[in-house]
Design a protein around this nucleic acid. Structure first.
Length: 424
RNA sequence: GGAGAGAUGGCAGAGUGGUCGAAUGCGGCGGUCUCGAAAACCGUUGUCCCGCUUCCGCGGGAUCGGGGGUUCGAAUCCCCCUCUCUCCGCCA
């Protein structure tokens, strides 16, 4: 969420920036400023009265000590009216605070200046591409046929155990999945990320901290009995490690990497256009998360993009990097680069990574701050994250692009992890 | 799941109604001493909000797990919630 200070100081700037995201903030901003002004006024009065109250109470204490009971009683009389006034003021304050917060959390994050205005995916900007497009003969199969042919991923069995979108990985399919996870983790650790293994269910505070709650409640599986949520991404637990934390500037940037299963209800987005591994309710993902100094967060973002690019390159997948336009960006992001890989048999680009800088938007929710050495003032950190990588669509592309008559070739970098060179 | 104990500043740990934002120790920071360092000594050291100053800072309010209550006054008393620990049970 945006800070109230920024809203006070740069109301028009915010409204203008949010138009890039096709968000009309005018009304909300005016309401916020109005609530904020009255809130501050009331609080100033309440604080002044409270100050009087505290002074009188101290005086009563002194009188009691010197056994001036009559004077103490007289002083008490003075407090009753004061107390009522304070009460009536603070009673007004509580709903105002709540209202203010409810309005502020409706405002999306401001887009970075490089972000172009646009309505949706069609307005995104291709930054660069790489890799060699596979040459497949006319007999090539889409991955949902390949997984059956080689019996490596079983959707029907998943339906029996759980439901649609919960596949069972079998044999070389399971091994390939594990190989990819280990490869991605190892590459991350080599690049200086610290491996963490967080819980995959989180509480409500964590859901709020990274911005999934309250708005995107329907996208997460909810363990109602305990008030927990299954994580939609490792971003949630890993970023929330730094909730309510004040870091030293020297500790930045913090670089974490985590493998977790991810759970998404994908309510309302299921349909014929998402077959096979293209969209699942449970999938595996390795995520990189950074906590950065605000002055260096875009360098961090570039490094993360380079890291992800290195991964898709090493798997020999044709890829392209897309900068999302304002209309296609998430609520919480300032700048997002999507990675897409080419899926040879489906003949379409599949999104396999999304790398974002949230600047201080999540940090403000998380109350994750840092202190410059020797300075008293705390400042909000910048948070970033990116998939490195999400597995199912990588698997889909690998299966389709690498299919041959004798089987599916495993990329060289994975062979030490799989122990086999071909799926047949 | 049953019974009991507890939750205080970065950490340890006092404090059971009246200058308590909180003793003391450790740690951190600054200084004295030193060629330098250690030790010793002196000082300083939480966070949030509001106002003034808008560079250092000053004043007010809040904050002792969270919420509510009693009281002129709550870290201290009462109620609810959450969490932690110990014992028992269960268990990968």
């Amino acid at each position: 969420m945006l800070t109230i200070n920024l809203i006070r100081e740069k109301r028009d700037f915010i409204a203008e920036r949010l138009r890039i995201k096709n968000f009309n903030a005018e009304e909300i901003l005016d309401k916020i400023l109005e609530i904020d002004a009255s809130r501050r006024q009331i609080q100033a009065r309440a604080d002044a009265l409270q100050s009087d109250m505290n002074r009188i109470s101290r005086e009563i204490g002194a009188l009691m000590k010197s056994r001036n009971f009559a004077e103490a009683e007289a002083a008490k009389e003075k407090t009753y009216k004061l107390k009522d006034e304070i009460k009536s003021l603070t009673d007004k304050l509580i709903p105002l605070d709540e209202e203010l917060r409810n309005e502020i959390i409706r405002l999306p994050n401001l887009p970075h200046q490089s972000v172009n205005r646009g309505r949706g995916a069609e307005d995104n900007v291709m930054m660069r591409s790489g890799g060699i497009m596979p040459v497949l003969d006319h007999e090539n199969l889409p991955h949902w046929d390949l997984i059956k042919k080689y019996d490596i991923i079983d959707f029907e069995l998943g339906i029996k155990l759980t439901g649609a979108g919960f596949p069972v990985y079998k044999g070389k399919g399971a091994k390939l999945e594990r190989a990819l996870i280990n490869f991605f983790l190892d590459e991350g650790v080599k690049a200086g990320y610290k491996e963490v293994m967080p819980p995959i269910v989180v509480n409500e505070d964590s859901g709020f901290g990274t911005g999934q709650l309250p708005d995107k409640e329907g996208q997460m599986y909810n363990v109602t009995l305990d008030g927990f949520y299954l994580i939609p991404t490792a971003e949630v637990p890993v970023t929330n490690i730094y909730r309510d934390v004040i870091l030293d500037a020297e500790e930045l940037p913090i670089k974490n990497i985590a493998y977790t299963p991810c759970f998404r209800r994908e309510a309302g987005s299921w349909g014929a256009h998402v077959r096979g591994l293209n969209r699942l309710h449970q999938f595996d993902k390795v995520e990189i998360v950074r906590i950065s100094h605000p002055d260096h967060s875009y360098e961090s973002l570039d490094e993360m993009v380079a890291h992800v690019e290195g991964l898709v390159k090493s798997l020999d997948l044709p890829y392209r990097i897309i900068r999302l336009c304002g209309g296609d960006m998430s609520f919480t992001s300032s700048l997002t680069y999507d990675f897409e890989v080419w899926s040879g048999a489906q003949k379409k680009w599949l999104e396999v990574s999304s790398v974002s800088n949230f600047e201080s938007f999540q940090a403000n929710r998380l109350k994750c701050r840092f202190k410059e050495k020797g300075e008293k003032q705390t400042k909000l950190v910048h948070t970033l994250n990116g998939s490195a990588l999400a597995l199912p669509r990588i698997v889909a592309a690998l299966l389709e692009n690498n299919q041959t008559e004798s089987g599916i070739k495993v990329p060289e970098v994975l062979v030490p992890y799989t122990g086999f060179t071909i799926i047949d």
